[in-house]
Write a protein that binds this DNA or RNA. Sequence first.
DNA 1: GTTAATAGTCAACCCGGTTGCCTATCTTGT
DNA 2: ACAAGATAGGCAACCGGGTTGACTATTAAC
Lengths: 148, 148
Amino acid sequence: MHGDALREFEVASRHDLTHTVGAVSRALTAAIFRRLAERGYGDVHQSQVAVFSALDPEGTRVSTLAARAGISRQAMSALVRTLTAAGYVTAESDPTDQRATIVRLDRRGAEFCRAAVVASGEANAEIERALGPARTAQLREILRLLGG
Amino acid sequence: MHGDALREFEVASRHDLTHTVGAVSRALTAAIFRRLAERGYGDVHQSQVAVFSALDPEGTRVSTLAARAGISRQAMSALVRTLTAAGYVTAESDPTDQRATIVRLDRRGAEFCRAAVVASGEANAEIERALGPARTAQLREILRLLGG
DNA sequence: GTTAATAGTCAACCCGGTTGCCTATCTTGT
DNA sequence: ACAAGATAGGCAACCGGGTTGACTATTAAC
């Protein structure tokens, strides 16, 4: 039978760095979003964070956001619509170009960003507590070398 | 304006370990699947790997696969249907329980598993080449401490 | 001032997942 | 022995987050 291949596969995947890094990554991400949900931002989903990451302080067009996030204008348009409805961003038409929509951070969006900064700080502190300062520094160096 | 929050957010996310680990994880995963695609397994998708991971050498029921993979029976059923059609696994009804379907590795599935072992080995070797043996050992220790 | 490019959106679709519900089969308790 | 309940699987409807194609409105270029 083909069982041997399966056993080799299982052993290899236990020692596979990609696999292990993925598991850790998912756990860390889940922890961050748990923290944000506890702070009252359970309605912000992973895909929507890309909007905040792509947003300039002075506001940004939907097309530009889409290009920066690496998704289609239509997909970004939908994200912006949701975030606008929830009060995270505003969308106004550009006075200098009637075709364009300028997306800007709204009050709840600013609060979310600050909460995310706090949540990130806490998560990093927890990682450092688990690893100690030396290993945390090693981790940062390793991630840098791996192109993070 | 709310621009300050955005600037703090941007700075924090550049130093956020969760974010950085996620980026590295996605890059490593993409590299593995690129390798598998080069070997002729471009039709195997990430979600389908969960089936191989959950499969016992002597065959496993769909319900058991679903429970191990943490998805619904219906979702696992669909994955198995696709993999069966592509020749990776077989699905036969359990002679000792007519309700149950036993999924077993088929020839192409066994070949895929061996290819995945090779691809994993190559990927790990590449990581070790980038980091050197000392940092690679540090990485394994760090991942262990972070619950990987 | 016509033509071409750009910004945004609607519609239809895909993929991978969910829940609710259903049938077929097995197991249990009396 | 058999009714009642648990379990295995699959169908249908739906959701989220993405895609492509086709369209309108507006701006830019020659």
